[in-house]
Structures are given as C-alpha cells and as structure tokens.
Amino acid sequence: MSEEIVIQTRALSKVYRDFWGRQKVRALKALDLEVHRGEVFGLLGPNGSGKTTTIKLILGLLFPTEGEALVFGKSATDVGKNERLGYLPEESYLYRFLNAEETLDFYARLFDMSPDVRKERVDALIKQVGLDKARKRPLQEYSKGMSRRIGLAQALINDPDLILLDEPTSGLDPIGTREMKDMILRLKDEGKTVVMCSHLLADVQDVCDRIAILHQGELKELDRVDKLLTVADVTQIRARGLSKECQNEIRDVISRHSGELMEMDNPTTTLEELFLSIVRDSEARPGRRAKVGASETVADEG
C-alpha cells in the first residue's frame, strides 16, 4: 500500500445478525475505497446507507463480515493504527462526570504522553475550541455545541494524521457549523487527512475534495466534488455591473448561436452566509435592531 493511501478498503462487507446468527441487514456490500493523504474525503448517503458502518469498520469498532479495511497499511483491528488517528463520534461519547481539562488529560494519557506535553496540548486545545472559560465545568453541564467542541478536542489530542468525523456538524448552530468547517479546512491545510460522513450535503460540498455516495450499503458514486457537480452542457456566466442593454445583447448572442437561455437573474446568497453576516454585524454593533415591517413596505412601494 502506497504511503499516499491512508485508508484502503477491499470488498468490505458487513452483515448484521441477530442473537441466533440469522441475517438482519446487509449494511455494507463489497466496498472498495481509497483515501489519499491530505485530502478531505466525504461519505455521503441517506440514513441507513452504511456511512457510519464504514467508519466503524475503519476504526475497528466492528469486524467485517467479508473483505478488509487497512489504515496506514495496518489492519483496522490493529490497535497500533490508533496512534495516528483521531475520531469524533456522532454524539460526544465522553465521560460526563469529568470536566474539560480532566477529559483531555485522560485521553492524552491514553497516548502515553509525558506530563509536560500533556499539559501543553490540553491547554492549547481547550483554547482552540473556545472552552477556556468552561474548562473546570463537568461535561454534564455542557450544551450540545460545547460537547461537540470538547469531542473535537479529544479527537485532536494526539495531533493525528487522520481524523474521522462522524456527522461533525450535527446539532451545531450555524456559527458552530462554520467553525467546524473552518477547522476541517485548517486541518487540511496542515496536511491532515480528514474523512467525514454526513447527510448534510451543503457541509460536504463546502469542505470535501472527494466524496463517495453510498446507498443501501453500495457505493454509487466516487469522485472529486467539483467534477461530480460540474454540469458539462451548461455554461454559467457571472458578471457585475451589466446594463439592461448589455444583458439583452447577451440574450441575442445566445439566441444567435442556437443556445437556450435558462436563467439570467440577480443571484441570491445562501441563508448561511446571510445568518453569519447578521451575527457578525450584531457582534460589531451591539444594540442595533431590525425594523419590523420595513421590508414589506419596500416591497409594496416597489
């Protein structure tokens, strides 16, 4: 296995059975996959498509029924691979009677870190995920967003080369979602490999280099995001400051070349962008309130 390939699965299959060994569900069917070093890889699919099963098989939390999963060239069941791996589960499965500091210190000890390194790493991560003021509070008092942040911190405690994120933005507000996505991109910039699974398409689209789409346990699509999303027979033009005349001229040009004008309109921003700009503005200018009814008035006047 090349050093460039961080994760490799060969005909990876998983069948869940009941107590008597009878087949309950075939969760994954002969998955062949390669994840390369330094990329952000997304596993997409509806609920029950096999995303989380794939992640669990890669982590060694489940044993494959057939096939194998290799991580850094080692079997997924080899504990040694975990030295270079970080994992953020779907929910923050952490010990709720510990506080943030104790939690990170505990996980750092599991990596056999010396006391000095441990202290330094714990401090840095608590600050990085913005929990400095809540570092002494037990996790049972944390909000969902705070729990996700401390969960992410524990996943990064060993400065891993490979980070597996299971539904990383689940339960986060838009700000938390953006921070998580920024964090993923930052990790990519640092040369880390990130594998995430999600059913929130926008999140995947924003951060992933390549995606695999799973459905009913089968791999349906696997390629670069930009390539998959490119519609080859449609040309998109984006321009600023065009006059009405110019726009009409463009319509004529398209018509002259037997093209079909599908849409020419002013673009809209995303709701996420709008929300974030409002929050940023509110933080910059506290006390400013929206004028209720102003927009309707403008529309009426228009």
């Binding site: 060694g60 975990n82 994992y87 929910e91 499965y93 599991l110 990596f111 060993n158």
Partner: peptide, 14 residues
C-alpha cells in the same frame, strides 16, 4: 451502553 468505550478503544489502548 453509553458508548463512551468508542472514544477509548479508538485510542492506542490494549
């Protein structure tokens, strides 16, 4: 049951 074991066994713990 609480799945806290997930975050332990995914560390280099024997």
């Amino acid at each position: 049951k609480a799945k806290t074991i997930y975050t332990v066994v995914t560390k280099p713990v024997r």
